[in-house]
Simulated assay, not measured.
Amino acid sequence: MAEIILHDTDLPADVTFTGSVAVDTETMGLKLHRDRLCLVQLSGGDGVCHLVRIHPGAAAPNLCALMADPAVTKIFHFARFDVAMLLTRFGVRTAPIYCTKIASKLGRTNTEAHGLRVLCKDLLGIDISKQMQSSDWGADTLSREQMEYAASDVLYLHRLKAHMEGLLAREGRTELAQACFDFLPDRAALDVAGWAEEDIFAH
């Protein structure tokens, strides 16, 4: 059973991560400039999940310092949205990044299924529930079910990253994946600036 620790407003200064940290967010919706960021989940891959509740207008300097720390790789599943939401809410550029969804799309071309639940089931033999995905993350109190759901989104990302690294190496796409990861902060910035749908590389 995972250990889940809930923090209010910011990550405590004495909570640190070395090398890498798995990250996810929960929001009131999927519109960057309409819907607010409610929760940020963090795990060092050790079975412990830190949940940081984000309050409207409140700063989170420790969390932002972690997102910008060049010595800590932030592991996401579908980093584009989370990174854009963090940029919208705090103005922080999150880097460096590893995205397991991009890695799956480049390494697992035998399938069109790249969701987190599918990857956990296929690669790790773990069945995670997505039942609480659209619950009210802005509620005054989070239920135990919500907290367990939120934790499940980060607890397995280190193990998935290890699988993906092997697949990408096997298919000769490690460098291509890294180039995509390096571009993600700018892709998120384009989304925030209004170029979410337009392909600026198109003719």
Rank of each mutant, 00 (worst) to 15 (best):
I5P: 06
D140G: 15
K31I: 11
G19V: 00
A58L: 01
A162H: 13
T73N: 03
Y149L: 05
L30C: 08
D10T: 00
D186S: 11
Y149M: 03
G19W: 00
L63M: 14
T111G: 09
E148A: 12
N62C: 11
R34F: 04
F81H: 08
G125W: 09
S143V: 06
G172I: 09
F90P: 00
T25P: 06
W195C: 10
R187A: 14
W137R: 04
G29M: 08
T88R: 12
L86P: 02
I5E: 11
L39N: 02
V15E: 03
A58V: 02
I128M: 12
G47V: 02
E171V: 14
H163I: 15
R93E: 11
E26M: 11
G172K: 07
L116P: 06
H77P: 00
A179T: 14
A65D: 10
G166H: 05
T111K: 07
A188H: 01
T174A: 15
D122A: 13
D122K: 13
E198V: 15
D82W: 00
T94R: 06
I97N: 09
M67F: 09
H55C: 07
A169W: 07
L106I: 08
A84S: 12
D153S: 04
T16I: 09
A162C: 10
H33L: 10
T111F: 07
A84L: 05
D69W: 05
